[in-house]
Amino acid sequence: MGQKILIIEDEKALAEEWAKGLQYAGYETKIVTTLNEVMNILNQLDFDLVLLDIMLPSYDVSDRIKQNSIKWGRIAGLWIAKQIKEREPSMPIFVVSLVTDQKILDELKQVGVVKVVSKPISVKELIDIVESCLGKV
């Protein structure tokens, strides 16, 4: 059984391609595409690494969360990273993001995100980074 990667990415078409590449490299994958799905999975974090897009839409969550995500604007993923780290402090999180705001990048670092890269990224690069985050290289 390969190590398990959780892919949090709202663009399903893209997440499927990343999953395909990672599976080919020997990993098991699970894709979640909405904030609601993320909320449902937070208490069963049976994964070895989380690959996270920090810009997630928030159309499918409760009003309370929605109010917060309106405040977060594009960075609902920062909240997700914090939630994951609170539950599983040792879980490596690898962020694929388009955010260039240094304040957000610093916060991601503070939360304990191990790597932040910008789109576009090739599948080969993605696999290399996953391996490096898991200490394989």
């Binding site: 893209l14 391609e17 395909k20 590449g21 910008s118 576009p120 090739s122």
Partner: peptide, 30 residues
Amino acid sequence: MNISHELRTPMTTILAAAENLQEGRTTDVE
């Protein structure tokens, strides 16, 4: 910033799908 995000996401998907095809990671059915 908006346009950069809007353009980069489809570009990333095209890149990933094309690379998987090229590297033989995509089956005939897929």
